[in-house]
Simulated scan of single mutants.
Amino acid sequence: MDIKQLRIFLNVAETGSFSDAAKRLNVTQPALSRQIRLLEEDSGSPLFIRTGRGVRLSEAGEKMLPRARLLIEEMERLRMDMTAFAGELHGRVRLGLPPSVGSVLAGPVVERFHRDYPNVKLRVTQLLSGALQESLLNGRLDIGILFEGNVSPALRSQPLWSERLFFITTPHERWQGVEMIDYADCLSHPFILPGPKHGLREVLEQATRKIDKCLNVVVEAESLAVQMELVCRGLGCTILSFEACKNHIDAGRLIAIPIVNPDIERVCSLVWSRDYSLTRATHEMADVITEIAGVMFSSTPKVT
């Protein structure tokens, strides 16, 4: 088996169709089928099962898929790193950011990186932390930012900054003069929060269990924009960093009350897969993120 055959295998697996994969790769279907047949002969097992709608992976194909993807990714990283030694930095970086971080950090990071490395193709994806972590683990993203406490052991992490979380609600008269709120008192209010796979939800669930209470989640919103809109409409409260809500707070639609007993904080970390080595371009992106985060957030933890 060779890299060309593995590329064809991955494209067939992704499209579920020999004809669609052939069109994507700009080859004839008989040529593609021949390469798959050779790969199956080398592996000693059929890799696809034919169905009325195309093909699906066999048990052997399912086993081959992650390892084939890993090999292709490594070859691509090697090619980009070798190209970089010949002159200006080229390649691509696929960056994933959770919405609350992306709204603050994406602009300055992308602007700086694009200025310094104009020949690197950059793709920025905004995902809730559960989906972001999955994309890092399966190689669809090269690097991202997640919240500590919800990071898989299969990912490497480097702390960037810590942020305090606030009780976020509408500026109702009942909150006039309230300078802080106990976490236990927060829990008597209805919440609009992301689902259980989100890092924020895990932080809050852990803090809630410690005081033997429960979160009253009336709406699970898998979008920061939707979450903010529902809170602005008075349909519930939420807990977020000040920066994530700053535009709404400045406009007078929301207020942020510090939470005490205990203070609720989360650590934002730069993360990448242990299974995929970082390209030179991705290393440069990590340096840009670390530098900008250090300037923007004064409570950056010390990295050892």
Results as ranks from 00 to 15, higher is better:
162 S>F: 00
36 I>E: 10
250 D>N: 11
10 L>D: 10
52 G>Q: 13
181 I>L: 15
70 L>H: 07
112 R>W: 11
301 P>R: 01
160 L>T: 08
56 R>N: 13
181 I>C: 07
239 I>Y: 05
201 R>C: 05
77 R>V: 15
103 S>H: 01
222 E>H: 10
226 V>L: 11
83 T>F: 04
122 L>W: 02
280 R>D: 04
132 L>S: 05
120 V>W: 07
237 C>L: 00
295 V>F: 12
36 I>R: 00
289 I>D: 10
283 H>K: 15
222 E>P: 08
202 E>G: 00
219 V>D: 09
173 E>S: 09
89 L>N: 05
21 A>M: 03
146 L>A: 10
189 H>T: 01
46 P>L: 07
233 R>Y: 04
153 P>R: 11
245 C>V: 15
149 G>S: 13
216 N>H: 13
286 A>C: 14
167 F>G: 01
283 H>M: 14
26 N>G: 07
30 P>W: 15
147 F>A: 14
246 K>W: 03
171 P>F: 05
5 Q>A: 13
298 S>L: 11
222 E>N: 14
48 F>E: 10
252 G>N: 07
152 S>N: 15
37 R>T: 12
4 K>R: 12
215 L>A: 01
203 V>K: 09
76 E>F: 00
202 E>V: 15
146 L>R: 01
181 I>T: 04
185 D>V: 10
108 P>A: 09
279 T>K: 03
170 T>Y: 03
208 T>K: 08
53 R>E: 13
245 C>Y: 00
99 P>Y: 05
34 R>Q: 15
109 V>P: 01
216 N>F: 08
270 L>E: 08
158 Q>E: 11
204 L>S: 00
223 S>A: 12
172 H>R: 11
67 R>Y: 15
131 A>K: 07
233 R>W: 13
228 M>P: 00
139 G>A: 11
54 G>N: 07
109 V>K: 02
267 V>G: 03
279 T>N: 11
281 A>I: 08
25 L>Q: 12
124 V>P: 02
18 F>L: 07
56 R>W: 01
73 E>H: 05
31 A>R: 08
50 R>D: 04
92 R>N: 13
155 L>G: 08
134 E>W: 01
107 G>L: 11
224 L>N: 11
21 A>Y: 04
114 H>N: 12
254 L>Q: 10
89 L>C: 02
197 K>Q: 14
82 M>S: 14
94 R>W: 08
236 G>Y: 05
265 E>M: 09
182 D>N: 06
64 M>T: 05
279 T>F: 03
103 S>Q: 07
126 Q>A: 03
193 L>A: 04
1 M>D: 06
202 E>L: 14
193 L>S: 01
29 Q>F: 02
33 S>T: 12
110 V>Y: 03
186 C>P: 00
250 D>Q: 12
254 L>M: 07
145 I>K: 00
169 T>C: 12
255 I>E: 06
37 R>H: 11
21 A>C: 13
37 R>S: 14
9 F>N: 09
48 F>K: 02
42 D>P: 02
253 R>C: 04
278 L>A: 09
277 S>K: 11
231 V>G: 01
124 V>G: 06
6 L>F: 10
174 R>Y: 08
198 H>C: 09
232 C>W: 00
65 L>H: 06
207 A>Y: 13
292 I>T: 06
81 D>N: 15
82 M>F: 06
101 V>R: 01
2 D>K: 12
304 T>N: 09
276 Y>W: 07
262 P>E: 12
286 A>F: 04
61 G>F: 01
224 L>E: 14
35 Q>W: 02
139 G>K: 03
126 Q>W: 01
